[in-house]
């Protein structure tokens, strides 16, 4: 064999071995991420079973049609599924507001932690993660204790004479926002902190030196340089918010449903698994489109920063 043939054979062997060695991981990733999706996709195009489940090998697009359209109960006319659309809209709206709120609250928090001495930083990060130790459902019920009519906020405010009647917070969008912001705040703080910890604070000094006041330093230096953290945090908050189940269920009540509750309903009392599967996939598509738009937009904004 010529020397270069030997070399190529060695490269081929190396490539083979790499694929073989990573095969277990690839199989797990493939099965775990695409397997359930295929099941969902299959369920969404089957006919619904009479008592939940689906009828195998009986194909039907009713599930998908019912996502957007419904037959009027009385006249049988086909119209838009207003209930579904308004739940979609409420979910997107509440998720965007939640993302914005966690960003506004999380940014100063992460900045605070990142500017502490190295040793104390770890303690602060540790404190941020403490809520994860308790079950989400229990934390949500605790939240209910804070905001319900006889809860902490209303009791204290009434004692202080700030209000004469309890403010109805429970079972409103405010309650859902309040709960989701609380629940997802750590998911914003942690990636923000990760990117801020890498921020070279000598750049902040350099900007001060070049006549930038505090606000301009924030806008021109800190925000652009921590953008990866902002994007990561926003994604981590927005996506689970969109599919949130426990928080809107407990704090929002039956009237303030979000997508997660709607899907849950179809698989539970609704006995309409194909519809539930179709809504789930729709939710996923919405998330993916939102992500694409967001990433495109921020990439373009980044290009502007370079002034080309």
């Amino acid at each position: 064999m010529q020397p270069h043939e030997v070399e190529q054979a060695a490269i081929r062997r190396g490539t083979m071995r790499r694929w073989l060695l990573s095969a277990p991981a690839l199989v797990i990733i493939f099965l775990a991420s695409f397997g359930p999706l295929f099941v969902m996709l299959a369920f969404s195009v089957l006919e619904k079973g009479d008592y939940g489940g689906v009828k195998p090998w009986t194909f039907s697009f009713d599930g998908w049609a019912n996502v957007f359209f419904q037959h009027d109960i009385f006249t049988g006319e086909l119209g838009f599924a207003d209930a579904h659309l308004s739940i979609f809209w409420r979910s997107v709206r509440l998720s965007i507001i939640t993302t914005a709120l966690t960003l506004v609250l999380g940014f100063p928090t992460a900045y605070f932690i990142a500017t502490r001495p190295r040793k104390t930083r770890e303690i602060w990060v540790f404190l941020v993660t403490i809520p994860f130790w308790t079950n989400l459902l229990i934390r949500t019920f605790a939240m209910q204790e804070v905001i319900r009519n006889e809860g902490v906020i209303n009791t204290v405010a009434m004692r202080l004479g700030m209000i004469s009647e309890p403010i109805q917070i429970m079972y409103t969008d405010w309650a859902v926002l309040f709960g989701m912001t609380y629940v997802y705040l750590p998911l914003m703080v942690l990636p923000l902190y990760a990117s801020m910890e890498k921020l070279d604070f000598r750049l902040v000094e350099a900007a001060y030196d070049l006549y930038a006041n505090r606000f301009k330093v924030l806008r021109r230096i800190i925000l652009p340089l921590t953008k990866p953290g902002i994007i990561a945090g926003s994604i981590l908050v927005f996506i689970p918010s969109l599919g949130a189940y426990v928080t809107p269920r407990v704090l929002g009540g039956g009237k303030n449903m979000m997508l997660g509750n709607l899907i849950g309903l179809q698989f539970g009392k609704g006995n309409n698994w194909p519809l539930g599967a179709a809504i789930s996939i729709t939710l996923m598509v919405v998330v993916m489109v939102a992500l694409l738009v967001y990433v495109r937009a921020t990439a373009r904004a980044g290009g502007d920063d370079r002034g080309r």
């Binding site: 000598r202 750049l203 350099a206 652009p224 340089l225 370079r306």
Partner: peptide
Amino acid sequence: FQSYALFPHLT
């Protein structure tokens, strides 16, 4: 600055 402290996101 000793480290130059150039802004890495700017040209």
